[in-house]
């Protein structure tokens, strides 16, 4: 049975990991290294994904305390790992769970805005989108219509939401966080 160090090296060679990423991984405690190896093998993490994981894990531990392995053992991460999804979907779910731990306030804002848009009930032909990471002020409201009636229907829904103040709620969330 190869040692943990050998297994990590083999994985790094197989995935062509950069020397910097490998060195950071090797700098962790043996327990933490092993936790990440299990995750990396399960999700077949490439350099970019692995670097994101290493960055986020280290940043979470520096901010919140605890251990890197402890973060990976959190229920929300484990839940995502133990779902019956394809490897790519599982990677997406685990990464999302970890990102929520790394960016709790930003994630909360995303959730609140998603809920606020859902509450608007604007129908399937109106799409509301925000700038990347909500940086900037512009909210884009796009209407797709095949005829005047569809357009009128969407505009009417928007007018109603403007009048009853629910659209304002979306801008307030963006403004106040």
């Amino acid at each position: 049975m190869p040692s943990l160090a050998e297994q990590i090296l083999t994985y790094a060679q197989h995935k062509h990991l950069s020397a910097q990423t490998l060195a950071r991984w090797q700098g962790w405690t043996a327990e933490d290294q092993a936790e990440l190896l299990t995750l990396a093998e399960e999700l077949q993490l490439s350099e970019n994904h692995l670097r994101d994981f290493v960055d986020w894990l280290e940043e979470i531990v520096l901010r919140d305390g605890g251990t890197l392995g402890g973060v990976l053992s959190r229920p929300e991460v484990h839940r995502s790992l133990n779902t019956k999804l394809s490897r790519n979907d599982k990677l997406k779910a685990v990464k999302d769970a970890l990102r929520r731990l790394r960016y709790p306030q930003l994630s909360q804002l995303e959730d609140d805005l998603r809920a606020a848009i859902k509450a608007l009930d604007l129908g399937g032909r109106v799409r509301v989108s925000f700038p990347p990471a909500f940086e900037g002020d512009e909210v884009t409201v796009a209407i797709t219509a095949h005829n005047v009636k569809e357009l009128d229907d969407s505009v009417t829904r928007l007018r109603l939401r403007l009048a009853d103040g629910t659209l304002q709620r979306m801008f307030d969330l963006l403004d106040q966080g």
Binding site: Q105, L106, A133, E135, D175, Q176, G177
Partner: peptide, 15 residues
């Protein structure tokens, strides 16, 4: 909770 901004620099997200 920093994000990349239009000038390429990372800042705390706007809200």
């Amino acid at each position: 909770e920093q994000v990349p901004c239009a000038d390429g620099k990372w800042r705390t997200f706007q809200a």
